[in-house]
Nucleic acid binder design. Structure first.
Lengths: 139, 139
DNA sequence: TATTGTTATACTCTATAACTATA
DNA sequence: TATAGTTATAGAGTATAACAATA
């Protein structure tokens, strides 16, 4: 690929990814809003303080407080005292939170799975390799 | 690729696209919010009525009225009377709207372009093909 | 004093319901 | 009567500023 075409690819690939994300969002009728799912997905990787969660989600601490309050009230997240810092808290998914997150992920994947089934084996293989590259880019 | 792996790919690919979209959003400091850019991008393809625009953007007519009001006030969109239906309007990008959209797109592409430059020619070629497939999926 | 999290308050984007003008 | 768009109003999600508790 000639390097003069790179800006064009940058634009096309960005648009394509955004278009897919958009379709996934529109096609799946989630029981949780995107920002709730996103926060829970972070906690799935491991417990975090509210401050850490606000930072990775690129959201202000007061906004995260609000989000976490909702999740705690719903029983999806547990908010414990921090073991070594009395000012802080530790957030963690509950079993119900984990189950809910899996259910939501499966619903979101449905549309994508249906689309992939329309492709040839070679095309599926190409997308598998592209997925690895995209993850490396966004890392 | 064996078909039992397809659900896994559906999940991985969805996550990868969302991750890229997210990075683009976080890395670019846009002068316009995402929904404004999205609405303007639709108008770039050609003039639309408010109702049509609300439908493709999956948003209620009153929400679109608000969005359009903002864009008209900013001079980015022109709202003319519809030539054949007195109840309706026709929305179109102004020259300034077009220029602003180009500027925003370039800013968003900067991060992606920088990432693509770290890849080999073969990897870039693979992503080019993947882009075409993704667009077909999201069509 | 600095830091962590929360409360108080306000702004933006969204929606549903009611309204106006035209078909 | 039905449809296109707007206005009225309310519900989420976000932010900044001020506050309480702890380091």
């Amino acid at each position: 690929m000639n390097s003069a075409a790179l800006p064009g690819l940058a634009n096309d690939l960005r648009i394509a990814c955004q278009r897919v994300s958009r379709r996934v969002r529109f096609e799946s009728t989630d029981e949780l809003t995107p920002h709730l799912v996103s926060a829970m997905s972070q906690l799935k990787k491991g417990p975090k303080t509210p401050g850490e969660l606000a930072e990775v989600e690129r959201v202000s601490p007061p906004s995260m407080t609000r989000t976490v309050n909702f999740l705690v009230e719903k029983g999806l997240v547990r908010r414990d005292d921090h073991p070594s810092d009395g000012r802080s808290k530790l957030l963690e998914l509950t079993d119900e939170g984990r189950a809910t997150l899996s259910r939501v992920a499966r619903a979101r994947d449905d549309w994508m799975l249906h689309q992939l089934e329309t492709l040839t084996k070679d095309e599926q293989k190409l997308l598998k390799e592209a997925t690895e590259l995209l993850n490396r880019l966004a890392q």
